[in-house]
Amino acid sequence: MDVLISIKPKYVNEIINGNKKYEFRKHAFKKPVDYIYIYETRPIMKVTHKFKLTDVIIDTPNNIWNKCSSVSGMNLSDFSRYYQNSNKAVAIKIDKLETLEEPLSLSDLDVKQAPQSFIYLNH
């Protein structure tokens, strides 16, 4: 099974540059996942990359920051704002990033709208 996640273009650039090696979420996947497809939000609005899911760390936001900050691709202020009022943080390791030869639209994946967090793909 694969999932689609939305990421702002500035963070996709951090991933491409190798500065961001973890994607942070508030909820873990409940089903087994093979690949994660990246939908770049405005102004790109296309599915541009995918990566293999190899590792997920679930812990408190503070512990996740301590483990992943040097490869987070973001600053503490943005990280803290994202996890404000959360006791749990999920860090998804970005491994074997692939650029799609042709960017995909959401409709190419039978998706009606960009996910807030993530959605499972049936393709």
Score class of each variant (00 low, 15 high):
Lys50Glu: 00
Ile58Cys: 08
Ile38Gly: 00
Glu101Cys: 00
Trp65Ala: 10
Pro32Glu: 14
Ile57Ala: 04
Ser80Phe: 06
Asn62Pro: 01
Leu104Asn: 05
Thr99Cys: 04
Ala89Thr: 13
Val90His: 11
Gln84His: 14
Lys21Thr: 06
Tyr83Leu: 06
Ser69Tyr: 12
Leu100Arg: 02
Ala89Leu: 12
Ser69Arg: 15
Thr48Met: 00
Lys50Thr: 00
Gln84Asn: 15
Lys30Tyr: 06
Ser80Lys: 15
Val56Gly: 01
Tyr82Leu: 10
Leu109Ile: 07
Phe24Trp: 02
Ile36Cys: 13
Leu53His: 02
Lys67Gly: 03
Ser107Glu: 14
Ile94Val: 14
Met45Ala: 10
Ser86Lys: 14
Ser107Val: 07
Ser107Cys: 03
Asn87Lys: 15
Val47Pro: 03
Leu100Ala: 02
Ile58Asp: 04
Val111Leu: 03
Pro61Tyr: 10
His49Asp: 06
Ile44Asp: 00
Lys20Leu: 02
Leu100Tyr: 01
Met45Glu: 15
Tyr37His: 03
Tyr82His: 12
Pro43His: 13
Thr60Phe: 02
Lys31His: 05
Ser107His: 08
Trp65Ser: 07
Lys50Met: 02
Lys26Val: 08
Asp59Ala: 10
Asn75Lys: 15
Lys52Gln: 09
Leu106Phe: 12
Lys50His: 03
Lys46Asp: 01
Thr41Cys: 07
Asn19Val: 07
Ile38Val: 10
Asp59Arg: 05
Glu102Leu: 05
Phe29Asp: 02
Phe79His: 14
Asp108Ala: 02
Lys50Ser: 02
Phe29Ser: 01
Ile92His: 09
Lys88Arg: 14
Asn19Thr: 11
Trp65Met: 10
His49Cys: 06
Ile92Asp: 08
Lys88Pro: 03
Leu76Gln: 14
Ser69Ile: 08
Thr41Tyr: 04
Phe79Ile: 13
Glu98Leu: 09
Thr99Phe: 02
Tyr83Val: 08
Ile64Thr: 12
Asn87Phe: 09
Ser72Asp: 06
Met74Asp: 07
Cys68Ser: 11
Met45His: 12
Glu102Ser: 04
Ser86Ala: 09
Lys112Pro: 02
Asn75Tyr: 08
Tyr22Thr: 04
Asp110Lys: 08
Glu98Gln: 13
Lys30Glu: 11
Thr60Tyr: 03
Lys52Asp: 05
Lys112Asp: 12
Phe29Val: 01
Glu23Asn: 08
Ser72Gly: 07
Phe79Glu: 14
Ile58Trp: 02
Ile38Asp: 00
Lys20Pro: 00
Lys20Trp: 03
Lys93Asn: 10
Leu100Thr: 01
Ile44Gln: 02
Asn63Glu: 14
Gln113Ser: 11
Pro103Asn: 11
Asp110Pro: 00
